[in-house]
C-alpha cells in the first residue's frame, strides 16, 4: 500500500509549488522570446536561439553549476541580490529558478512553433483594421497560438516536476525546504531500507505526470473545438 511520511507529503507539495511557480514566471519571458524568434525581424536570432536552447542540451548539473556561479554571493546576480538581503542558493527560490531555466527552452520552442504556424495575413488584416501591435498581439496572435502556449506550459510543468540535476546543485536537498519528489526519491534510494518508500514516491510521480498530460490534452481538445 501507499504509505507516505510527512516529509514525503511536504516533498509533493514542494514539487507542485516549484512546478507551478516556475511555469508561471517563465511564461511572460518565454512568450516574449518566442515572439522575437518567430515574428520579429531582429538580428542575431540564431545566437539568441542557441543561448535559450543551451539548457536543453547541457547536462542539468552543468546548468545548475552555471546558475550557482551566477547566483552565488560573489556571482553577478547573487552579489546584487545580496545587497537587498535576498538569498537564492539553498532556498525554494533556487529550486524554482533551476526549474524555470531548465524548462524554459521547451516552453519557448513550443510557443515559437505555434506562432510560426499563424498565417501572417491574419496579423496584417488586424493591423489594417486599426489595431495597434499590442492590440493585435492580445486579440489575434495569443488566441491563434493558445494551443501551442498550453502545450508549452504542460511540457514545462512536467519537466519541472522531474527536475533533479540543476536543483540539487543550486538549491541542495533540504527536506521541507528544497526537497522535491525526485530529490526525495534519490535520498531514499541511497538510504538502506528506503526502497519501498522510494517506490511509493515513484508511483506518486508517475500519477502526477500522467495527470498533467491528461489535463493538458483535455484543455487542448476544448480549445480545438472552439
Amino acid at each position: 500500500m501507499l504509505t507516505l511520511s510527512p516529509d514525503d507529503i511536504q516533498a509533493i507539495k514542494l514539487s507542485l509549488q516549484v512546478a507551478v511557480t516556475a511555469t508561471i514566471i517563465a511564461l511572460p519571458p518565454g512568450f516574449a522570446v518566442a515572439y522575437l524568434l518567430a515574428l520579429s525581424k531582429m538580428r542575431g536570432k540564431a545566437l539568441l536561439e542557441g543561448m535559450i536552447n543551451l539548457p536543453l542540451v547541457l547536462p542539468p548539473v552543468v546548468t545548475g553549476y552555471l546558475l550557482l556561479l551566477l547566483f552565488g554571493r560573489k556571482g553577478w546576480i547573487g552579489g546584487l541580490l545580496d545587497k537587498f538581503d535576498i538569498r537564492i542558493i539553498f532556498t525554494l527560490r533556487g529550486a524554482i529558478i533551476a526549474s524555470a531555466v531548465v524548462g524554459f527552452p521547451l516552453l519557448v520552442r513550443s510557443i515559437r512553433i505555434g506562432m510560426e504556424g499563424i498565417d501572417r495575413q491574419y496579423i496584417q488584416a488586424s493591423r489594417t483594421l486599426g489595431a495597434k501591435w499590442w492590440d493585435t498581439l492580445f486579440t489575434i496572435t495569443v488566441p491563434l497560438c493558445s494551443r501551442a502556449i498550453l502545450a508549452g506550459m504542460t511540457l514545462m510543468f512536467a519537466r519541472s516536476l522531474g527536475e533533479f540535476g540543476a536543483t540539487i546543485v543550486l538549491a541542495g536537498n533540504i527536506p521541507g525546504i528544497t526537497q522535491t519528489i525526485p530529490l526525495a526519491i534519490y535520498e531514499y534510494t541511497s538510504t538502506p531500507g528506503g526502497d519501498s518508500m522510494a517506490l511509493s514516491l515513484c508511483l506518486i510521480s508517475i500519477l502526477l505526470s500522467f495527470a498533467v498530460l491528461l489535463i493538458g490534452e483535455a484543455a487542448n481538445r476544448s480549445l480545438a473545438r472552439r
Binding site: 495575413q121 488584416a125 495597434k132
Partner: peptide, 20 residues
C-alpha cells in the same frame, strides 16, 4: 505611418476572417 493609422483597408484574396 503604421498600418493602423493609414485608414487604408484591405480585403485579402482568401478573406482571412479571424477563425477564433
Amino acid at each position: 505611418l503604421p498600418p493602423d493609422r493609414r485608414r487604408v483597408g484591405v480585403v485579402f484574396q482568401h478573406a482571412h476572417l479571424f477563425p477564433h
